[in-house]
Simulated scan of single mutants.
Amino acid sequence: MTVRRVGSEERLTTSFPLQAYAFEGSPRSVERAKEFREYLPYNEGNRTLVVEEAGETRAAVSAIPMRENLRGRVLPMAGVAGVVTHPLARWQGHVRTLLHQLLDEMRDEGHQLTALWPFRPSFYGRFGYVGLPLRRTVSLPVADLAPLLRADLPGEVGWERIGAGYPAWHEFTERCLRERHGFALFPDYRAVALRDRNERWLVTARVGGTVTGAATYRIDEHGGTLAADDLLATDPYARSLLLQFFARHIDQVATVRFDVPADEVPELWLTDLEVHVQARVARPGSSAPMARLLAVDALTGLPVGPARVRVELTGDRWLAGVYLLDGTTGALELARAGAGGAPSATLTAAGLSGLAYGVLDPVEVHLRGLGDVPADAGAELRRLFPRRLPYLFADF
C-alpha cells in the first residue's frame, strides 16, 4: 500500500471515478467519464491524496484551501472533501491514514481550521471534529409576501444572470466573510464555477450603490417554485428588499424556497406568513457540517470576554498540550505556562473546538464526554467563548 499526492490529470482516473460511485447514481454512461475533465479547472488547487495497491486506487481524500471567519478573524481553513473508498477496500483504515497525512500537510502549510460535511459524524468525531448548525430551508407561498409589494423600502434591487453579476456577488460574499462568524469561502479557482456555469439568476439589494443583500436562484417551471440558494442580507432592510423582489413573482410561481442561517426566525418576518422551516439531518446523504481547530494559534487574538483559564488538551495529534488562555485584555492570549491561580479544565480537541465555534456550552462539553470542566473553569470558559452560532455557508 502506498500513499501519494495526485496531480490534476490523474484525478480523472483516480479520485473522480470513486467520487462518482460514492455520491452519484450508478452505473453511469461512458459520457459521464468525459464530463470529469470539465471539473478539472475547479479542482486545480486542491490537495488530493490516494491510497494505491497494485497500481489501483483504493481510497482518496481532498482538501480545498479555503478561508473561514472565526469570531471575527478570517483564518486559513482546509475544507475536506471527496472522502471515498473503493467498495472492496472499505473498513480497512485507508481513510484514517489519508486524513492524518492530509491534515498534517494542510496544517504545516498554515491552515489553522478545518471543516467538512461528514458521511458519518461519529467517525469524524474521533478526529476531533465537532458538529456545526445546519442551515435552515425556508418554504413559503409567494402570495404571503404580497404585503411587501406596498412597502416603501430604502435602497434598490438589481437583477441579472450570475455570469454578468459575479463581480458584485464575489465582492459581497467577501464582505460576509469579514463580518459573519463561521462564514467560509472557496478559493477563486473553485468559486468561479458559479460564474462559468451561469445557471442562476442573481438578485441584489443595494443602498447607495453598495450591495447589502444578495441571492442566487432559479425557477423550475411556470406555477412552480422559485428556488434560491442562500438568502444573504446584512440587515432587515436588505432582507425585505430581496423578499419584495420574490413577491413580484406572485403571478409566475406558487412557492419560494431558500436557505437561511440557523439563527434566523422567518416566522417573525411578516404577519400571517405561512412558512415551513426545516433542517433535516439524515445518514447517509444529509448531514450537518463539522469543524475543528487544527492549531491552537487559531485562538490568538480572538475577541473574547474578560476571563482566564488553564486548559489541558488531551488525546489529539495536533493540539495536545497545556495552555493558559488569557482574555483579560479583550483579545485572547495563549501561553504554555503554569496556571498562576487560574481555574483548570481538561478538554479534547472537539471540546475546545465546540467552545471556540460557539456551539457548545462548557456544561455540554462535559455532558458530551469532550472534557472535564469544573464549575469555576466552566464560568471562565463561558466568558471567554460566549455562545455564538456559526454560518458555514459553503458546501464542499
Rank of each mutant, 00 (worst) to 15 (best):
A377Y: 04
L177C: 08
A54E: 15
P236K: 14
S286K: 13
T346H: 11
G338D: 09
G7T: 08
G79Y: 11
M106A: 15
G213L: 07
Y124T: 04
R28W: 11
I250P: 00
T329F: 01
A184V: 06
G378T: 04
L293W: 05
D196K: 12
V84S: 04
P303K: 11
G351D: 09
L392E: 07
F172A: 12
Y323E: 00
L226Y: 01
L367A: 13
K34L: 13
G358K: 11
L113Y: 07
L232W: 07
E44D: 08
R248Q: 13
V203Q: 04
T48P: 00
V61L: 07
G208Q: 10
P261L: 02
A350N: 10
E312I: 02
R135W: 04
L134P: 00
E24T: 11
V309T: 07
T137H: 12
G351N: 13
L352E: 00
L226H: 02
T348D: 00
P266V: 09
N69G: 09
A233W: 14
R175L: 13
L153Y: 09
L360T: 10
S139G: 04
Q252F: 05
H94M: 09
A339Q: 00
G305F: 01
S29P: 01
P27I: 07
P362A: 10
G165E: 10
S122Y: 05
R175C: 05
P41S: 08
E174T: 08
V74G: 03
A193W: 06
L75C: 06
A335D: 04
L299I: 03
T234H: 06
E53S: 12
C176Y: 03
L334Y: 04
W159K: 05
G45P: 01
R382F: 02
K34A: 15
A78W: 06
S15H: 12
A78H: 13
E38Q: 12
A193L: 13
D297M: 02
T48A: 07
V61M: 06
P41Q: 12
R206N: 11
G82V: 01
R37H: 11
D144F: 06
R107F: 02
H276T: 14
E56C: 02
L294H: 05
A60T: 11
Q19S: 14
F258K: 11
R206A: 15
R387I: 05
L132N: 05
A279G: 11
V30C: 07
T300E: 14
V311C: 12
G72W: 14
L242A: 12
T212P: 01
R67F: 05
